[in-house]
Design a protein around this nucleic acid. Sequence first.
DNA 1: CTAAAGTTCTGGAGCGCTACAGAAGGAGAC
DNA 2: GTCTCCTTCTGTAGCGCTCCAGAACTTTAG
Lengths: 360, 360
Amino acid sequence: MQPGTLTPTLGTVPRVTLKTVADRVGVSAMTVSNAFSRPDQLSAALRERILTVAAELGYVGPDPAARTLARGATGTVGILLTESPQHAFYDEYTIAFLAAITQELAGAGLALTLLPSGRAGDVVPARDVAMDGAIAYSCRPGVDGVDWLRKRRLPLVFVDQQPERGHTSINVDDRAAAAAAARHVVDLGHRRVALVTVGREVTDPDTAPSDYMVARQRMRGWLDVLEPAGIEPVVRRSDYDNPEAGAAALRDLLDGPDRPTAALCFSDALASAVVRVAEDAGLRVPHDLSVVGFDDTPLARRMRPALTTVHQDAGEKGRLAAAELAAAVARHRAGEEPVVRRLELPTELVVRESTAPPPA
Amino acid sequence: MQPGTLTPTLGTVPRVTLKTVADRVGVSAMTVSNAFSRPDQLSAALRERILTVAAELGYVGPDPAARTLARGATGTVGILLTESPQHAFYDEYTIAFLAAITQELAGAGLALTLLPSGRAGDVVPARDVAMDGAIAYSCRPGVDGVDWLRKRRLPLVFVDQQPERGHTSINVDDRAAAAAAARHVVDLGHRRVALVTVGREVTDPDTAPSDYMVARQRMRGWLDVLEPAGIEPVVRRSDYDNPEAGAAALRDLLDGPDRPTAALCFSDALASAVVRVAEDAGLRVPHDLSVVGFDDTPLARRMRPALTTVHQDAGEKGRLAAAELAAAVARHRAGEEPVVRRLELPTELVVRESTAPPPA
DNA sequence: CTAAAGTTCTGGAGCGCTACAGAAGGAGAC
DNA sequence: GTCTCCTTCTGTAGCGCTCCAGAACTTTAG
């Protein structure tokens, strides 16, 4: 069955194309094409006439698929999300990031396609979806979606993951930021510290390239401060998308006299869950337990007590990622050399009410 | 410049296509196509050989754009979001909905493209992005994105907005659900009630087709109960994406002796903001002010006091929307008659701790 | 009044792929 | 040994559009 002759059972309705309109008006197909896509190439009067006839025939405009093939551009970029795409939706930080991207891309006339990094049957979105470029966001190294994108030689921007040569990347200095958080609690006098993070169990933060780079770097940053201070932290982990579980894993630690007096958390979402668990265990934050988050999402300010956390600007990250990608796509189209940048956005420790000196 | 001859400044690198591989292996282009797309059409040995040569040449697979044109299917569906797409990201309810959609679509081998409903320059995503179908989510009637989608005769599913003939729609009975919430506070004895909602100012909930249908229906449902009870509510509104503002607008009402003793809110997000404003004003929830939300997002259960709210299943809505659309796309491709359904998911009032009888 | 410089429109040649019908060759049935 | 059927492979003919070079005609300059 030909695409144009769909609905055979309903009687083959011949599709209305440029040609249909052209024949009806009595001009060439090219002129109709120009009427829609390059108005300056024909007289206003003729254009008006063409548009009228097109409307009568129910011709909406050039078929996007055909136009894509002919022009070599789709008007769409993809974003490759960690594992199941739905994981991406569970944290205000990611949400704000995505919101900023869509916003910025819209300004460039680009739509955003969410690419699940897995495969469904024989469809691999990263390989099979037409697009002009893509953002790889916080993917584990080795996720094969990234591999496909690379092989396709698409303009790529990496965010919150290991930079790769030849592609622009955007990150914050997670290690230094985490170290600042750790220093804060050490300076307050804490000696028993819990680290609540995401991802896989790894002893040595320097190895384990199979894990999210961001989680690794933050772990490294915490240890950069804790180890020299002679503090051996307890570590609890959970899945990326399930902060409750990570916090729950902390529960058993909260009873004994040797319980941690401070918890450094991978994200605000995780910190929020930790506070809830602590309070349910009868502990007061920050009096009995200091809690530090990461990201400084709106949640951090809403919480009671307001959360001490590491600020980073998710919106700015998203805007930058989108802008860099849009620029890369434009350069790619123009046949220019790619411009590779290593962008690092600033972070700042924001001390609020969830941290205090340890109980006496 | 031909798409194939990009990068003229870098020297025209001839693109590797099916043909390139075919010539190299010494078979027809069709056979190479089959090697990638219909493995059962050729011997395993030849296929292996073709794949090897393709890999050597750096041929990744059939070009998605060309395949789209030839096959008449893109492997992508769109979702048209309210106004700026970023508005969609501000509420856990919408997030859960989107997450479920991507999840379900991934299973059907479809990717999801976020369509800003506006236009950027001369690009109108709803008109210019290649896709096999679309979900229109909570769009104002008359948003021209929907118009383009309709004109393109794409399979469409409408969610949380006015159903249209010829297209499947998914909703809850917002009116009845809101009425149940209103009845709850009236039954508790409240006589001074505030309604905190989103969208435009309208006196008569029956008119104003320019506003979100959902907001209109909930308003109507509240009034269905309040008016017969002789209660004249005060109404406060905010933008869809800014619950804080809506709550803040309530602030001035909270002081006098005639202040409302109950607030019915359009969403949990809004209710949460209202609780914060009330507490900042020195009122206790629910003792001084009862608050009811809508949606029953995870937030409702996390809140202290836990929020009384109307439960609806955002995940189920998303899954259903995706499944219905995928089915509609498949039927469309097969040339079958569309199956139009009017789906209505159940709701349930969940009474938690944020509502109580009014202060004596 | 002629040459040069627009303006407006057209034809042909792709873009890279897949559907379809059919050719070529080999296996199996009788 | 012949006929049929199956497997494997191949040309052709698009899909609907846009690029490019140039034709036809009109205006401007000298």
